Amino acid sequence: MKIIYILFILFTTNATAQVATSSELFKTLKSNDSLLFDVAFNRCDPSPLHLLIREDLEFYHDQGGIQHSKKEFMEVMKKNICGSPDFVSRRELVAGSLKVFPLYDNGTLYGAIQMGSHRFFESRNGAMETPGSTALFTHLWLLNEGHWQLARVLSYDHKAP
């Protein structure tokens, strides 16, 4: 319920809390986005996920349902995204769409909301890559002992090309 409240506050307030793209927070979370998608998703290398994702991850997808843990998420990645050499999916962040909003508790940074748009491309049986869906995403990152970990994911508004 807290995530819904946080997102409600975020969407109903002025966006001036967004950090600059030159800030350390923005750069760090953009780098994490790259590890999640360019490495884990696009190359099917799950190694960065072990450190970047919390055990209690919740992933809400408007077409694929809910995953209630890191374990479930990893199984879906292995089975659906990286499970067949006959189907390859690639994700691309839409340039300029990434936004980061810091979260504070009495002046202490404890988390951040990262939002953006991404598009997907698909290739079947070695054929040329074709456009897949575009979608929006919202990630809740929590700072844990100096390390950013993905706690909640909303993947929504998927649209066909």
Rank of each mutant, 00 (worst) to 15 (best):
M128R: 14
I53W: 05
S31N: 14
N125T: 09
L154W: 15
H139A: 02
R124A: 03
A17W: 00
A112F: 00
I4T: 14
K79T: 05
P48G: 07
Y110F: 15
H158S: 15
N42I: 09
E72F: 05
A112C: 01
Y156F: 14
L36R: 04
H68Q: 03
A40N: 06
L103S: 03
M74W: 02
K79N: 07
S23C: 00
F37A: 03
D38A: 13
A95S: 10
E75W: 03
A40M: 06
K78N: 12
L93I: 11
H158C: 06
E75I: 06
D86Q: 13
F41V: 02
T12E: 07
G111R: 04
L98G: 05
L49H: 09
E145F: 09
A95D: 13
L142Q: 08
N125L: 12
F11K: 13
S69R: 11
Q114T: 12
L7P: 04
F41I: 07
R91T: 03
Q67C: 00
Q114C: 11
D56T: 14
K2W: 13
T108G: 01
P48R: 10
G64S: 06
T108Y: 09
P161L: 04
L140C: 08
N42W: 09
H118P: 06
V153S: 05
E24P: 02
A112I: 01
K70H: 11
N125G: 11
L25S: 01
F137R: 07
S133F: 01
N144F: 06
C44G: 12
R43W: 04
E75P: 03
E92H: 13
C44T: 12
D33L: 05
N144Y: 11
P48Q: 08
S117G: 09
R91E: 05
I3S: 10
V88I: 15
S31T: 12
T130Y: 02
L143D: 02
I3P: 12
Q149G: 11
T13M: 10
L29N: 02
P131H: 09
V76W: 04
M115N: 11
V100D: 08
K30L: 14
L36C: 04
I3F: 14
T28D: 10
L136K: 15
F41A: 03
Q114K: 07
D56G: 08
